[in-house]
Design a protein around this nucleic acid. Structure first.
Length: 194
DNA sequence: AGTGAGATGGCCT
DNA sequence: GGCCATCTCACTA
């Protein structure tokens, strides 16, 4: 249950379900002499070949997206805007090229001193945790540096599904409700409308 | 509170 | 050459 590392089978399910189920789970990352444990509070699903907002839309394959074609449970880390990294978790099988973007985290030890917005945003959280290209392609079910642990499921009524951020170029897919967040959580990256 | 621009570099066309 | 699954700071009001 608690402290149990999520295994590959968790990730090899429907991408939407994985994106929702990752809420409340614990991302663990080990640096040199330190270990951080953070609750996932916001995610986005990217649905592969049929999703115009996805890097693998239309079955595209390139050096950058190659790790999206690893089996579910691997990390996909890419550089955006020349200065930020984004962390994704690959889902389903090596055939689909689907993944879940980790958009926001919350420190588990919630000192009042801690800034709840420190990990609010996909680029920010990678910067704070030192996640970079070196983590691209890592197996989260086997890595000694980065993995995700189980935690009690967040009740459905506390979860909101809204359109994804920054994908206006994707036509009608820009409106698909594939961004999942714990409603009202202070660490959410940017307030959804309404 | 809300808007706009600049930073900065790998990668795709 | 131009585009980003972003963030921060400056500016308006």
């Amino acid at each position: 249950m608690e402290n149990e590392i999520l295994e590959s089978s968790f990730y090899r399910r429907s991408t939407k379900v994985v994106a929702r189920d990752l809420l409340g789970k614990i991302l663990v990352i080990r640096g040199s002499g330190s270990m951080q444990r953070l609750t996932i509070v916001e995610t986005e699903a990217y649905l592969g070949a049929k999703d115009p907002a996805c890097h693998t839309f239309g079955g595209r394959r390139s050096k950058r997206v190659e790790s999206m074609y690893l089996p579910g449970g691997h990390a996909y880390v890419y550089l955006i805007y020349g200065m930020y990294y984004c962390l994704n978790v690959v889902t389903r099988t090596e055939r689909q090229g689907e993944a879940v973007l980790i958009r926001a985290l919350a420190a588990t030890t919630d000192f009042p001193k801690n800034d709840p917005r420190r990990f609010a945003g996909p680029g920010k959280l990678c910067r704070e945790l030192g996640i970079s290209k070196k983590d691209d392609g890592q197996n989260l079910a086997a890595s000694k540096r980065i993995w995700i642990e189980n935690a009690p499921a967040i009740p459905r009524r506390r979860i909101r599904a809204v359109p994804r951020v920054g994908v206006d170029y994707a036509g009608e897919a820009a409106a698909w409700p594939l961004r999942f967040l714990i409603d009202g959580h202070p660490a959410i990256s940017k307030k959804p409308l309404r």
